[in-house]
Design a binder for these strands. Structure first.
Lengths: 340, 340
DNA sequence: TAACGTCAATAAATCGATTTACAACAGAAT
DNA sequence: ATTCTGTTGTAAATCGATTTATTGACGTTA
């Protein structure tokens, strides 16, 4: 276990001052060719790697950001994280991943931990399901008060007052939802039903609003008994589909692909043909769509891009120290496949 | 944007020395009740949060570890990461996630970055596909030389000499594979075929060896033309399945669940009944199994536990500074469902 | 009362970088 | 030769905590 070299060792070995080495490393000011050469060989020979901790202490910047999300196993969040990582790595930032398990108390602890670590920014992904409006954003405001950048990706604001200073990237959920309805109606479907996520989940509501709005344009509506809550869970969605069938719909809109597949399974088990008798539309256009039989029509949401843009917004905030905020709304689009 | 309080502010505000505050925070030595009280109120009033960067510089320990993995979107890796995060959070460690994209050069850069950040340990998950044996573990040895803990999770050693000092947690891939064969044979299956991942992928080989070993015990074997490479890809697996059908197998073993579903789709498209004509077995026992129709038999691998144990091993290494290494092999087991 | 031991509090050094203020030295202009 | 400019190098301060060595207060014992 060899001792790691530090900057003063390099300076001594190269016969120059520490400041010279530091300037060389950061390129802030020029150094003479000869000096540069000696420093370079010294760094090479001693295998010097700058100590980022010491650097952070002095510069008050860590080149690291925190990512807070409900869980990594949700493919949507995983894809968003990938996009973020890609953009951040391009600029040499690294990312600390904290999991809030959909629990606001845990999220508060994550934020406190991040405050101690002096990250340069924080990205919140997704919306904690277990939601108490009153306890929400005290810690988020505290975060903002320290002046570090905050970005929401695929997350709505519970409290509008917190919006100040927070940039966000979200999907235009209603848009793709409307497209799907128009497609189905022009294909002759008339009796619509829907399986949504959680009633109080903002994105679930947006999707639903999109469906309803487009239906109204065609003088149609979701009849009573044609709306169920699937809680984003496979088994619950299966049961929800069974209930919906009593209303004899000819098209079922489902808030994500996983539940849509559960729905198709329920239909199959009842010998109901897809798309013959009933069309099924998922949401997210994930890899699951291709796997299903018949292949699942869905609404595409570019998760990677969501993350990439989120990373971009955060970097801008960090670099410009801007107090203002940007709001990006990425498009969604209907992707027809065999199930419709 | 209020200035954050630092330790010296607390000391001044409470009328004590910095050392007293530090001792109070770390509980290393006792402080008088009265002093303790004054410090506590000072911390409370000034909303003090210790600066982890300064602390790290002084103590030479960051309470953070690096996680290096090919990508987050693979459900196996995501589940492993979740297990790691859980165990690390229990001890107050946080995790930096670096993605190597299956590229050893990128992985080297990840490691260099981690060296600069002075993480207390590094966990490598999974095996980089693009593999050049000669260039492999220079940087891993460098990592070991600095004395920080290294743990492999679900990753084999390319170079046995590097094994010294590295702890590892892996699945006993062959075991579950053998179980599956025994089950199928006792169910009357005789003509076996397999779709593996990549030929040179260590885990793929382990699974295959398990299959072959168990087949030999029954005086059976994988006939020529009954082995295809699916590259862990849906479409390739679909084509691989089509080819295999020429050999008229009555059971197909597939190296992961995704490819197994592709295989079932290929069978369905040829009007071959599962499990009537052919049994299909996946690997991983992921959420996909329940989604498939018929539900997919698979071999369970406890990914979360893999990660949790990996975190545990790393923590032990960090705390004891042990040079020795532990090797954990977790069991896998066959889970029969409708497809067999 | 002097001497001693205990215990809590303090002042100052330290971790490894960056950065400020200043010195040294070169070459150009006077 | 002297002064001025502009460049490059240096010493020392700094970031915010921990930790060592030391002091000081207090109680006990001889």
């Amino acid at each position: 276990m060899n001792q790691k070299a530090k900057l003063s060792d390099i300076a001594k070995h190269a016969g120059v001052s520490q400041a010279a080495v530091s300037r060389f490393l950061n390129g802030s000011l020029e150094v003479r060719d000869e000096t540069r050469l000696r420093i370079e060989t010294a760094i090479d020979e001693l295998q010097y790697i700058p100590n980022q901790v010491a650097r952070s202490l002095r510069t008050q910047t860590t080149r690291s950001v925190g990512i807070v999300l409900p869980n990594i196993e949700n493919p949507l969040f995983a894809a968003i994280s990938t996009g973020i990582e890609e953009r951040l790595r391009q600029e040499g930032y690294s990312m600390m991943v904290l999991i809030n398990k959909n629990d606001l108390d845990l999220e508060r602890k994550c934020v406190e931990s991040l405050l101690g670590q002096s990250v340069d920014g924080v990205i919140f992904i997704g919306y904690p399901n277990k939601l108490n409006l009153d306890q929400d954003d005290g810690y988020i405001r505290k975060l903002l008060n320290t002046g570090i950048g905050v970005v929401f990706v695929n997350r709505s604001f519970s409290d509008q007052s917190a919006r100040a200073g927070i940039s966000s990237v979200n999907s235009n959920y209603a848009q793709g939802a409307r497209e799907a309805i128009h497609y189905l109606v022009s294909g002759g479907r008339r009796r619509f039903a829907a399986i949504m996520g959680n009633w109080n989940h903002p994105h679930s509501r947006e999707k639903l609003l999109g469906y309803q709005e487009a239906l109204r344009e065609h003088d149609l509506e979701l009849a009573p008994g044609c709306l169920e809550e699937g809680k984003y869970d496979f088994d619950q969605a299966y049961r929800a589909a069974q209930k919906l069938l009593k209303a004899r719909p000819d098209a079922i809109l489902v808030a994500n692909d996983l539940m849509a597949i559960a729905c198709m399974k329920a239909l199959g088990d009842q010998r109901i043909a897809v798309p013959g008798d009933v069309a099924v539309i998922g949401y997210g256009d994930t890899i699951l769509c291709k796997m299903a039989t018949p292949e699942l029509s869905s609404i595409n949401q570019d998760a990677y891009q969501l993350g990439y843009q989120g990373g971009e917004l955060l970097l801008q905030k960090i670099k410009t120290k801007a107090i203002s905020h940007a709001t990006i709304l990425l498009p969604t689009r209907f992707v027809p496949r065999q199930s419709s």
